[in-house]
Simulated assay, not measured.
Amino acid sequence: MKYCYSSFSLKKPEMYENGDFESMLNLLRASENKTVLVKLKYKKGILKDFRLMSESLAKAYNDERFLQLELTGWGLNEKSCKTI
């Protein structure tokens, strides 16, 4: 099992100030039964990369603000962040 981690920022800084950021976090925290597309990239049978598809996230929440996410970092790990 692999754990996929990714960090995002918002493309528009004003979204932090106008309450969009907190609102989006609240939507994510209250998630249940949401399906989001993640593309996995393998090289010689080994997982090397993944991408959370922001269009899928926006569709799952019916919220265009999720299209303003910009990937700032990512990683793969053998352990969950809850156990690290």
Rank of each mutant, 00 (worst) to 15 (best):
52 L>F: 10
33 N>H: 12
15 M>Q: 02
14 E>P: 04
39 K>P: 02
9 S>P: 00
3 Y>R: 01
29 R>W: 02
43 K>G: 04
56 S>M: 06
37 L>F: 03
71 L>D: 03
52 L>Q: 09
46 I>W: 05
77 N>R: 06
9 S>L: 14
16 Y>E: 12
54 S>C: 05
20 D>A: 09
34 K>Y: 04
17 E>V: 02
55 E>G: 10
52 L>Y: 06
30 A>D: 09
47 L>E: 06
1 M>K: 14
47 L>N: 15
9 S>M: 14
9 S>Q: 13
68 Q>C: 14
25 L>S: 09
47 L>K: 14
83 T>H: 03
57 L>K: 02
9 S>C: 14
5 Y>M: 13
7 S>K: 00
39 K>G: 08
64 E>C: 05
42 Y>R: 07
70 E>C: 07
3 Y>M: 05
79 K>V: 01
15 M>K: 10
76 L>T: 09
60 A>C: 11
84 I>C: 13
40 L>M: 12
28 L>C: 14
12 K>L: 09
1 M>N: 10
18 N>H: 09
38 V>R: 05
25 L>K: 15
49 D>H: 07
53 M>R: 11
22 E>A: 10
57 L>Q: 03
34 K>F: 07
15 M>D: 12
22 E>P: 00
10 L>P: 04
34 K>G: 01
5 Y>H: 12
58 A>F: 03
33 N>R: 13
49 D>W: 07
82 K>W: 14
64 E>I: 13
9 S>V: 14
49 D>S: 11
22 E>F: 04
67 L>G: 03
57 L>F: 06
52 L>W: 09
35 T>I: 06
72 T>N: 01
2 K>I: 04
62 N>A: 12
27 L>K: 14
72 T>S: 13
58 A>S: 12
61 Y>K: 12
26 N>A: 13
40 L>V: 05
65 R>F: 02
66 F>M: 03
31 S>K: 02
20 D>Y: 08
51 R>F: 08
55 E>Q: 07
34 K>L: 14
17 E>Y: 02
29 R>T: 05
4 C>I: 12
27 L>T: 11
26 N>F: 06
78 E>M: 07
66 F>H: 03
57 L>G: 07
37 L>P: 00
40 L>F: 07
39 K>W: 04
62 N>Q: 13
31 S>V: 02
28 L>Y: 07
84 I>T: 12
29 R>A: 00
14 E>V: 15
36 V>C: 05
20 D>N: 13
4 C>A: 05
77 N>L: 06
